[in-house]
């Protein structure tokens, strides 16, 4: 009956296996970065804050694999330690925005009356504010550091999750299986939280994975303009910022490495997210 759909399948399947090879690669990159950051205190060759003024802006060598920065600090060690703050921020933001977004989306999608409409408009309003602008506002209120940007980003990314969850819930609500639960007399909270919510998680999870990459880049950008993590804490965005002087002096490596890692992680996470949403999308349709 579905011949028209089957026609291009052979080509698609080949494409599909290519994609998953890429996803495996992406997963390996992401895992490597996470593990190296997590165990930085054991694995890192040097103290990230150890200043060695006799050895500034050195190129890669046996002693310093990626070289040193303008204060002679080991770049590899700083990268590994910096991964902690750089990855921690997006992790908190993604978890926070996913939980909040799911809950708000469930409420908005389930209530047929004005509650759903008001929440929907609120999401639209939040969409209109760029995440970075929100973060700067929060920093103005709460001061520099990790807390304000994380709070602002969490709020800024809630509508991405909530809008998706809302539309999914609206679709699920009309399905016969949900109506059957109602007729069977199950309470609404049980149906919504126990039955409908788990059916949304794969799709929402894919969206949140994508969000991780965006948040990572946004937070790095905040650190770069000096509003995020403050020195001497190592952070990828802050590392790029600290290397501005060196960059102007012709030394690109201190800025290049953190930039490369940010790009690698963002791309890897996006590939994984795309793969997840493709697979789930294919399964649902």
């Amino acid at each position: 009956m579905t011949l028209a759909i089957q026609l291009p399948q052979v080509g698609l399947r080949r494409y599909g296996s290519l994609l998953s090879a890429m996803a495996w690669g992406a997963l390996a990159v992401a895992a490597a970065v996470v593990l190296l950051s997590l165990f930085a205190s054991v694995l890192a060759p040097y103290d990230p804050d150890y200043v060695d003024l006799n050895n500034v802006l050195a190129g890669p060598s046996g002693q310093h694999l990626l070289g040193t920065d303008a204060l002679g600090r080991d770049l590899l060690s700083r990268l590994m330690h910096g991964g902690r703050t750089s990855l921690l921020g997006p992790t908190i933001v993604v978890i926070g925005s996913t939980v909040l977004g799911l809950l708000l989306g469930l409420v908005a999608g389930w209530s047929e009356g004005w509650v759903g409409k008001v929440l929907g408009r609120l999401f639209d309003l939040l969409f209109a504010f760029p995440a970075l602008l929100m973060a700067m506002l929060a920093i103005a209120l709460f001061g520099k550091g990790l807390f304000a940007p994380i709070l602002a980003m969490t709020i800024a990314y809630v509508p991405y999750v909530a809008r998706l969850a809302q539309s999914l819930v609206v679709a699920e609500r009309g399905r016969p299986y949900v109506q059957a639960y109602r007729v069977l007399g199950f309470r609404t909270p049980w149906v919504v939280l126990g039955r409908v919510l788990p059916n949304l998680i794969p799709t929402v999870g894919a969206q949140s994975t994508l969000n991780f990459g965006y948040v990572l880049a946004d937070l790095a950008a905040l650190s770069f303009i000096g509003l995020g993590v403050q020195p001497p804490t190592s952070d990828w965005g802050a590392m790029i910022e600290e290397s501005r002087g060196a960059l102007l002096g012709g030394y690109i490596l201190p800025a290049f490495w953190p930039a490369l890692v940010v790009v690698l992680v963002v791309v890897a996470v996006n590939v994984i997210g795309e793969e997840l949403s493709d697979r789930i999308g294919g399964k649902l349709s």
Partner: peptide, 23 residues
Amino acid sequence: RKVLAKDVQIVFQDPYLSLDPRI
């Protein structure tokens, strides 16, 4: 609704949509 459930139940048309896919 819970009281009513013991009086009346329904079976829908589409066997592919009327069961929770995950359970």
